[in-house]
Simulated assay, not measured.
Amino acid sequence: MALSEEEQRLLDQMEAALAAEDPKLVSTLRGTGTRKIHRRRAATAGVGFFLGLGLLVVGLYLMSDGPIGFVALSLVGFAAMVASAVTAIYAWQHVGHAAPDQGRDRPRAQQGTSSDGSFMDKMEERWRRRRDESGF
């Protein structure tokens, strides 16, 4: 059964609020963070780029000695360089777009963890703050 637009919007708001209030829980539930995956992919592509560069240089060096079969080695090296560069650029762009841990940068008083007031007062204050931030 599909959610209505308002229900989907409320669910998205609740997810964003949970991510803002407890980023450690969210990262635990999601598993490996997307930022970490994209960084690893960019690093692997960097290694692939240098391996392709090595193949290109070796192919050119061996091609100067005689057989033309080493042209294929140079072409494979060049193709590996291009593929690695595209992969690295794509992954690195996504590292910047991945959501960082938002709750760690804010001071503790702004996170709604003050010791005064009851649990319900704190929850009401959080709800009011969310409602004011979202423009309701």
Rank of each mutant, 00 (worst) to 15 (best):
L3F: 12
S4M: 12
E5R: 07
E5I: 04
E6G: 02
E7D: 04
E7H: 03
Q8A: 13
R9M: 15
R9Q: 08
R9C: 14
L10Y: 13
L11G: 04
Q13D: 11
M14I: 08
M14A: 14
E15C: 12
E15T: 15
A16P: 00
A17H: 01
A17N: 02
L18V: 08
A19D: 04
A19S: 04
E21W: 03
D22A: 06
D22R: 05
P23A: 05
L25F: 12
S27M: 04
T28A: 07
R30K: 09
G31A: 06
T32M: 05
T32Y: 03
G33W: 01
R35E: 10
R39F: 07
R41K: 09
A42M: 05
A43V: 04
A45R: 01
A45P: 01
G46L: 02
V47A: 11
V47T: 11
F49E: 07
L51V: 14
L51M: 10
G52W: 00
G52C: 03
G52H: 00
G54A: 06
G54N: 05
L55A: 04
L56P: 00
V57W: 13
V58K: 01
G59R: 00
Y61Q: 11
L62F: 14
S64C: 09
D65W: 07
I68H: 13
I68G: 08
I68Y: 12
G69K: 08
F70L: 15
A72Q: 11
S74T: 11
G77V: 03
M81H: 01
V82E: 11
A83W: 00
V86E: 02
Y90G: 13
H94Q: 02
V95I: 06
G96A: 08
G96Q: 10
H97F: 08
H97A: 08
A98M: 07
A99V: 09
D101H: 12
G103K: 02
D105T: 09
D105A: 12
R106H: 09
R108M: 12
R108Q: 08
Q111D: 15
G112M: 01
G112C: 03
S114E: 13
S114R: 12
S114N: 12
S115E: 06
S118E: 04
D121P: 05
D121E: 15
D121N: 15
K122D: 08
M123T: 03
E124M: 14
E125A: 14
R126Q: 06
W127Q: 10
R131I: 10
R131M: 07
D132E: 10
S134M: 04
F136G: 09
